[in-house]
Write a protein that binds this DNA or RNA. Structure first.
Lengths: 330, 330
DNA sequence: TTGTATGCGTTATCAG
DNA sequence: CTGATAACGCATACAA
């Protein structure tokens, strides 16, 4: 129904190839006489021609499209990074499609299979799958790929924060605040970042309670309820392995008098205004986004100059209530 | 390079059509002898066959893919709604791709053109374009389409909140709190929701200051700085036309003693814990998402039963600081 | 400078 | 039950 090259060719008394060449623009178009070129472009505009990208992609095996598959785009962290990645890719002439696995391995598998079949040129992935082998049961080994946030061993094109440092600075801050006992609220232990963060914290503190669940606000809420049941004395701090969990805990715990310190990874919005001590270990989102783009681009252009995993430094930030608490104790 | 139907056909001494039929499954596959069927499926699995979705889409004009184009997926509001839309569509066998115009009309135009050319089956759009005419310069008139959040006159498949009510309940709450003078922080007045919300508020109160800019946190921060320069006495309330603007204002204003009421549209995370009076007019995100999906599905299956614009009711919520303030004044 | 012919991987039509 | 064969819309090698 929409006009095709054939239609334009008929209308202008030329052939499909001529039309194709004209519309291709650039050098190829220059090899066509100015006269026919004008006729063809005019007709194309008049008929409202739009190239069928499926056909073009089928033929050229190029789509100028990158897929970014994340685990939960309801989490603003992913929205922010996606937004920056989008801008970066756009500057280089690629468009980006964001897909969501919703922390569901089945949906991840579906998208993982489908996206390459749809002819994307490359993919940036926040993975649920944990091994290179498992991953490549779904995607072809030659697809330009960058692993984001959660390194997979054996894949060198990956960007993530230094988990040791990330958790380390959090622990240091807690130690300086005389924390000894903590409760731990973690996302799925099948996910390496959550597991790793939990492990590192466990190494440094006496963990008196634990709760694990999907990395969502609701899980944080449940955690506090569960902790409340077990014992009346709360620990010195509650450590959450991501922002959503932290937010859930904060929402429910703030009513307590003398609440424990909340320590979490990633940012809590407006933490400075919240009436309880908070320390966040914050990843450098712009740098992560930038690195992801820069790691993908050379793969797209064919050149594959020994990609190295990029490890981005993080920093710990305490809120005002935390700082006040410290100066009072001092 | 990846195996195709032809490869499988050769390997099994059959024809492409047979292979295609077997792999199609369902009724078509039943018309093939159990024996060849087994041989073909086995070979397909062994060779790791994956259908080329570009080719299939080119042929069938169906992709089982819906695009959701929003204006700013760094804003959690869009992340939440996108997440719900995704789940809804997924339940009906569609996958969803989220794209971001970043409040840039040029990028919107690009995606608007490209997505249909890529063979999506339908689209849900949070538009920047303001008229039906302008929109259809980019997308074909027969593309299944739902307009989300910002109705466009002449397009009946649209879902949004009742702006009159949404702004009305906010104004009522402010009036009951004895607010007379307000400052207004709005997103781009080219966007109907921002403009409309601003107008309604202007009707009810004396607007002593205004600031307009992109609907981002940064704009809210700038607004407060600007207001601070002009006069020393702040108004009774600052009204922001969305959550991001509100967050920016709150972040910068909280340091003030006796801060004004912050009134905004959409949700402020953990508002109950913030130390200044806040009232939010909150849209029903799940209902919006649901309606969007339900408005799109019938268009996809061909039946087009007189679609009506869906108007979703909203509610105003005040935080604890607001409530405390009220009881003190009473 | 332009046209012809071929193929990208599928599905669908038409024979047999 | 199965196999040729023709599209789908585009890009390109090869001719002219």
């Amino acid at each position: 129904m929409p006009p095709t090259l054939v239609d334009i060719a008929k209308r202008t008394n030329t052939s499909v190839s001529t039309v194709s060449r004209v519309l291709a623009g650039g050098a190829v178009a220059q090899r066509i006489s100015a006269e026919t070129r004008a006729r063809v472009t005019a007709a194309a505009k008049a008929m409202g021609y739009r190239p069928n990208l499926l056909a073009r992609g089928l033929r050229t095996r190029k789509s100028n499209t990158i897929a970014l598959l994340v685990t939960d785009f309801a989490n603003p962290w992913y929205g922010q990074i996606a937004s920056l990645v989008e801008e970066g890719l756009h500057r280089h002439g690629y468009s980006m499609m964001l897909c969501n696995s919703g922390e569901d391995p089945v949906r991840e598998a579906e998208y993982l299979q489908m996206l390459p079949q749809k002819g994307i040129d490359g993919m940036i992935l926040v993975p649920l799958v944990r091994t290179r082998r498992a991953l490549h049961e779904f995607i072809p080994p030659d697809l330009p790929l960058v692993i984001l946030d959660r390194p997979i061993s054996g894949i060198s094109a990956s960007v993530s924060s230094d988990e040791e440092q990330l958790a380390g600075i959090l622990c240091d801050t807690l130690l300086r605040a005389s924390v000894r006992e903590v409760a731990l609220v973690t996302g799925p232990s099948t996910i390496v970042t959550h597991r790793r963060r939990g492990e590192i914290v466990s190494r440094g503190f006496h963990v008196v309670a634990r709760h694990e669940g999907p990395a969502r606000i609701e899980t944080g809420r449940q955690a506090f309820i569960k902790f409340g049941e077990g014992r009346h004395a709360l620990p010195d701090a509650i450590v959450c392995t991501n922002n959503f969990l932290g937010q859930g805990v904060i929402e429910t715990i703030a009513q307590i008098e003398r609440p424990p310190i909340i320590a979490c990874f990633d940012e809590i919005p407006m933490m400075h205004l919240l009436p309880l001590p908070i320390v966040c270990s914050i990843q450098d989102i712009p740098m992560l986004a930038d690195a992801a783009v820069n790691l993908l681009l050379p793969q797209l252009t064919g050149e594959s100059p020994r990609l190295q995993p990029v490890i981005v430094p993080a920093r710990a930030v305490t809120n005002r209530a935390f700082q006040t608490r410290q100066s009072i104790r001092a």
